[in-house]
Design a protein around this nucleic acid. Structure first.
Lengths: 363, 363
DNA sequence: TGTTAGCACTCTTGCCTGGCGAGTGCTAAA
DNA sequence: TTTAGCACTCGCCAGGCAAGAGTGCTAACA
């Protein structure tokens, strides 16, 4: 795993130094061409299309060297060259040019994200949607998993004869509610009292800390009517708290995978979609990644099933603290320059959207 | 569109009368065999495998007649026969035998559905999940769209300095909440007063009726502090109410489509998934269908894209009144007998699960 | 009159072949 | 060091051929 424009240079600095300027230019042309065409690229193409000023024969020699160094592969003798994961890595770290998003796209990202940026989940969903639309890849976003998130409000509300709704709001903006049915009827007063007591006990405490407490015992010795109520509610309270710590994964653009030649093989497409639908394990993969813009290319991914995918993730911050992740997944042959720009911009704007919410200046 | 085991018989009674008992048996064998094998079925196969007691040659003559009547088609001269939509229709209406679910499966449906049947949405989601697992097809379920659904509780709760959560509970068990940010700070008293006033005004009223009222005006003339609050909240109140009337579509088993030979064509698979992802239009298709167990086969479907799918839907009831739909979609070649049984059983148990909730006998 | 056996016919599938085009690798000359 | 030239390799595609499956027809049989 390497991060973008940071430790990458020192790692690949030496290798790329070994490559002549000309080799780098040729490699760049090959990668760029292959990213667009998905066809093995030949020496003649490079020579003509990219105005290298050298003949195909020379390029062939250089290609041969690049292949020996592991940057190119050869599907068969007389096909063109295809970049290896190593070549993409070098391309991403050193060769690709920064892609500047058109103002129009920037504007549309900003507008879509700041509009109604109140509920964390909805905004995150918008972000995933934006990413997939702008990259034509499968995009995802996860809500933050922050053990430090603190409980802000606890409400228990009537919802039926024997049914109540437990509703929790965390400082991060997460809202969770769960309906539960009680063994018997309740009074509004008891609910209200229990809400108040719980709020008094737990408000401002870190969720993870609350979970370490012996909650059920806390409420054992109280007034009888409330004690009974508490007894029914506490197990759900605990599970709701736990679910607040869970990250939620949103995805969009799943069918984009079909537009990509690499996934015209039905088996591959199926495997891909099934991997993605395994939300739990995919979330774990995302959570285990470092912060910042992280690109893993093909075999750099630990998971077998992702060996011919590239995964790009970035982190977003909320109130400068809570950190979630978003990104895209697609074939190793993707437009790294544009895609990293889009992701970066969306992540930044997500920050901005929520900083705004604090002060409410946008309304 | 024809419903199962009802008007079907009278409609097809005449046609099937024209067919000899032997023709019906042969047709049944062909359909059953094709459903299992997905291969065009030949006369020899029928003769041997299904112990008809007649020679392949005779069967060929009968097949030829059946083809003329439109029940079979011929991909090419020397291939076996393939059932037409018309044949499936006859099979579904008259030929297939009732499939009795094994007790084990019945039990697992019952348990999965009744466990935690408090929140409508979650249970519906479970139902879709169950259907897809048991049929190996793409399953879906929609929540009821019942204009008569009535508002039961209205709560406005603090959720931050300028943020509140609006939470509505309907009689059907639907719970919706929406966070919104206000232009300025508020007091808990104002929130509570507004909650109470709104509850007083709207509780027990049909949601669709509330939407016809001039809600914003209702709150114009009140106490100033509350008036301002109401002004911010009412638009969201209205949109939340509207969203309560919306049906929600849950799906599961989307990748099952890849296991089906008919969808090994990448283009077809893509079209299928894209259709399904168009939640809005797919929901409309579902809503427009009659109640009860409805099977539409291939070209019986109005939508072009579903011309080689079969869609099976059934309705479920809650408290004997609210009606949602669930079902599966897959290739016309599906195990109609088993699948209708599963759907029927899941729908029935959904009813049961929610009838139980009323009395809470299950806890 | 209905049923069956036999046989010719049709069509798919798999396999092989040869020609074409793209692209390389090597060599010798500039 | 660069380049032109040429032989070579390989994938791709079309055509041909044989095997196999299944039908349609006909004539004989019960």
């Amino acid at each position: 795993m390497f991060s973008w424009r940071s430790n990458s240079i020192c790692i690949y600095g030496r290798i790329s130094m070994q490559l002549s300027e000309r080799k780098l230019r040729i490699l760049q042309a090959i990668v760029a061409d292959f990213i667009l065409s998905a066809e093995p690229v030949g020496s003649r193409t490079i020579s003509k299309k990219y105005e290298m000023g050298i003949s195909p024969a020379t390029i062939r020699n250089e290609m041969s060297d690049l292949e020996e160094l592991g940057f190119l592969t050869h599907p068969h003798t007389s096909a063109g060259r295809v970049p290896s994961d190593k070549a993409y890595r070098l391309y991403v770290n050193r060769l690709m040019e920064r892609y500047e998003l058109p103002e129009r796209e920037k504007k549309s990202i900003y507008e879509k994200l700041t509009q109604n940026a109140v509920e964390l989940e909805k905004t995150i969903r918008h972000a995933a949607n934006l990413l997939s639309e702008m990259t034509n890849l499968t995009a995802f976003a996860i809500t933050p998993k922050q053990k430090e998130d603190r409980l802000k409000y606890i409400n228990i509300l009537p919802a039926g004869e024997n049914t109540v709704v437990l509703m929790l709001v965390a400082e991060s903006g997460k809202i969770k509610n769960m309906a539960l049915s009680l063994k018997g009827p309740y009074t509004d007063e008891a609910l209200s009292l229990l809400s108040k007591t719980m709020t008094y006990n737990y408000r401002g405490k870190a969720i993870s800390e609350i979970l370490t407490l012996n909650i059920i015992k806390d409420f054992e010795t109280d007034i009888e009517a409330m004690g009974k109520l508490a007894e029914s509610i506490m197990p759900k309270f605990i599970s709701t708290l736990e679910s607040m710590l869970d990250t939620e994964l949103y995805m969009d653009g799943l069918t984009n995978i079909f537009s990509i030649p690499e996934y015209h093989d039905i088996e591959k497409a199926k495997m891909f979609l099934e991997m993605i639908y395994q939300k739990k394990s995919f979330t774990d993969v995302l959570l285990s990644r470092d912060d910042g813009m992280i690109i893993t290319i093909g075999t750099e991914n630990a998971e077998d099933i992702m060996k011919d995918c590239s995964l790009i993730t970035a982190t977003y911050h909320i109130n400068g603290k809570l950190v979630g992740k978003l990104g895209v997944i697609g074939p190793t042959r993707m437009k790294y320059d544009k895609i990293t720009s889009v992701i970066e911009y969306v992540a930044d704007n997500l920050n901005a959207a929520f900083s705004l919410t604090g002060g409410n200046e946008y309304e």
